[in-house]
């Protein structure tokens, strides 16, 4: 047999390698789009708002004098919102996921519930704002308080936490469950001492990513009517509040260009906060993975 002389066999090595290189370039470009946009955005923000990132920017309240304006109430409001949202959403979300994975029997009803949760994760955030306005602000008469905001945000991220926790529980090896049950552990003992610790990195990652989504959300806060000008920090759960995205939204709408610089500076703070949270997710996951029972 003489492969080279056969008319049926044509290796076309050069053409295939060209195509391969072309695809590699296209895929690299696809990756770069995201990175370039982020870098461009950051550079633009630093140029516009970098000069506004002074000490008093963090310790002053919103002011109509651009040189004295700060983000204290917005930053404190965002941090409170983050803490409360986490405290509400995590127990409920993780609890629901554990029940769905470990207790619920598989059936048509369960599939329906599952489908609903997946659907809820894709519902636009403004819809959660309307729900929060109708239910928490008006019906439960919580008014436009920190608590109403946190409850709304908790609803928003609940499906994401449920799904992330379910994924994490599913990735726990079956053998772990079976050997624990074989030794006479109760269902709760298995969950508490084996499943949750092993699934913790996945759960934590999901939780932190979900909470950082809540921190960056603006639409639900606008719908439930968070206040824009607040020169005090909340003293109780029922106090009115503002948050970084609301402050940014307000500043970009002001006529004077110096407020848009302040908006850029506030966006930088928000971005750093989000990057820090995502960074924390990675660090926590790595630490848990090292200490993971094997």
């Amino acid at each position: 047999m003489e492969p080279t002389s056969s008319p049926a066999f044509n290796p076309r090595i050069e053409a295939r390698q060209r195509a391969s290189a072309l695809w590699a370039t296209l895929l690299l470009l696809a990756t770069l789009v995201g990175i370039v946009v982020l870098v461009f955005l950051l550079v633009d923000l630093v140029i516009k708002g970098g000069g506004r990132l002074t000490g008093h920017f963090f310790t002053n309240y919103m002011s109509f004098d651009p040189d004295r304006a700060g983000i204290k109430s917005a930053l404190v409001g965002s941090l409170w919102l983050m803490l409360l949202t986490t405290l509400i959403a995590v127990p409920v979300g993780v609890g629901a996921a554990v029940w769905l994975e470990e207790y619920a029997s598989r059936g048509r009803l369960m599939r329906l519930v599952q489908l609903n949760i997946a659907n809820l994760a894709g519902v636009p955030s403004v819809i959660y704002g309307i729900l929060g306005l109708t239910f928490f602000v008006r019906f439960l008469a919580l008014d436009r308080s920190l608590l109403a905001g946190a409850l709304t945000m908790a609803l928003l991220i609940l499906p994401v936490i449920v799904i992330a926790t379910q994924e994490a529980l599913r990735s726990v090896p079956k053998g772990l469950r079976e050997s624990a049950y074989a030794l006479g552990a109760t269902r709760w003992q298995v969950i508490r001492s084996h499943l949750l610790p092993v699934a913790a990195p996945g759960i934590l990652t999901g939780v932190i990513l979900a909470v950082s989504r809540a921190v960056g959300e603006t639409a639900p806060l606008i719908v439930i009517g968070g206040f824009v000008f607040i020169a005090f920090t909340p003293g109780s759960l029922l106090d009115p509040f503002t948050a970084l995205p609301l402050q940014i939204f307000n500043w970009t709408g002001m006529p004077q260009a110096s407020f848009r610089e302040l908006a850029a500076a506030a966006i930088l703070v928000l971005m750093v906060l989000l990057l820090a949270m995502n960074g924390a997710a990675i660090v926590l996951r790595n630490r848990f993975e090292r200490n993971r029972p094997r």
Binding site: Y61, M62, F64, G225, G226, F229, P240, M254
Partner: peptide, 23 residues
Amino acid sequence: FPITALAAERFMADTSDIRIAVG
């Protein structure tokens, strides 16, 4: 908003016990 919020800002600078929220 800018007028009332500016009034609130200046008023609160003088009278710290009253809290004003403007939306």
